[in-house]
Amino acid sequence: MGTTLHFTTARDLFDAYEAAQSDIRARPDAEAPLEFLARLAESATPEEAITFGAYLLPRRKAVWWGHECLMSLDHLLTDQDRRMLRLAEIWVAEPEEEHRRQALDEAMVCPNKSPGVWIALAAGWSGGSMTDAGSPTVPPPPFLAPRAVNAGILGVLARVDNSFRRKTLSTFVDMGAALAVR
């Protein structure tokens, strides 16, 4: 099966993202990214598979992954989550500057950084500038979008009943792995 991954090995990802080295305690051998992802998912801290997946996927796919993970638990979402996810969805469908900016601006003013807000922030931090229009351009650091996707997915996972958490996490990892090879 051919993949469209940007990294030949999981170690390449760690080399590309210094922040991943502090966000993920486990270290890869010479494994392919999806092999490392699977190992993380079976580890004592399977949440690290979510973190790795957020770095592994290109920004747009990572935002979509976060969106789909959260929407699969719609019954656990607030109206604010749904509104923010809609903004992220619009940006994924049409990754234009105005959509990215709208997701960022609306997410930034939310007083409660709920899971949906984090996914909208990930869309907003996918590129462009973090500053207001008319201000000097300040591109977001490369780690912001993956960290926001991670926060959104792990945030909704925290809302899942303990008896379903491991299975839900596994489903989320499988969803990310499937997106990685598309």
Rank of each mutant, 00 (worst) to 15 (best):
A44R: 15
E106D: 09
I119F: 03
L40M: 10
A41M: 01
L104Q: 04
P140K: 10
A180G: 15
L13E: 04
W125F: 12
K167D: 11
W125N: 04
S126P: 01
D81I: 03
G124N: 04
A103K: 02
H6Q: 08
L179A: 14
R83S: 12
R159L: 08
A38K: 06
I90P: 03
T51K: 02
H75M: 07
S170T: 11
I50L: 05
N150G: 08
S170M: 11
H6K: 15
R166L: 10
R100L: 06
F36D: 00
S126Q: 00
A49C: 05
L104I: 05
P136D: 08
L157E: 09
L179I: 12
A93F: 13
G134D: 05
L87W: 07
T131G: 07
K61Q: 08
V160T: 01
L179K: 11
M84F: 04
Y55M: 00
A151V: 01
G155N: 00
P95A: 14
P140L: 05
M71N: 07
V109H: 14
R182D: 13
D132W: 07
A148G: 01
I90Q: 13
R165D: 00
P140S: 06
A122M: 03
T4F: 12
L77C: 01
P136Q: 10
E98S: 10
R59V: 06
L85E: 01
A158Y: 07
V109R: 11
P33K: 01
E48S: 03
E96L: 10
L77H: 00
R39L: 02
D81M: 09
S43C: 12
E94L: 09
F143W: 12
D79K: 09
M175T: 10
R27N: 09
V138W: 07
L179V: 08
R39N: 03
P142M: 05
E68A: 14
D29P: 08
A178Y: 08
Q80H: 13
N112F: 13
L85W: 03
V160K: 02
L5G: 02
A88V: 15
L179N: 13
P146V: 03
P141H: 15
A145S: 14
Q102M: 15
T8Q: 06
P141V: 09
N150C: 07
H67D: 05
R165L: 02
N162A: 15
T8H: 12
A41D: 01
D74M: 14
G66S: 05
A32D: 13
T171D: 09
F36I: 03
L34S: 02
L121D: 04
G127K: 15
R39C: 00
A123G: 10
A30T: 14
F143M: 13
S163Y: 14
L104M: 12
R101C: 10
E106A: 04
R27L: 15
V160Y: 00
R101M: 12
P141I: 10
T9P: 05
H75L: 11
G127P: 07
L169N: 03
W64M: 07
I153M: 14
D132P: 01
M130I: 06
D23M: 12
R100C: 13
M1P: 09
A148S: 07
P28W: 05
Y17H: 08
N150R: 15
M108Q: 11
E94P: 03
D132C: 04
R166I: 11
A41Q: 00
V63K: 02
P46T: 14
F7T: 02
R147Q: 10
A54Q: 04
V109D: 08
N162W: 07
L76M: 10
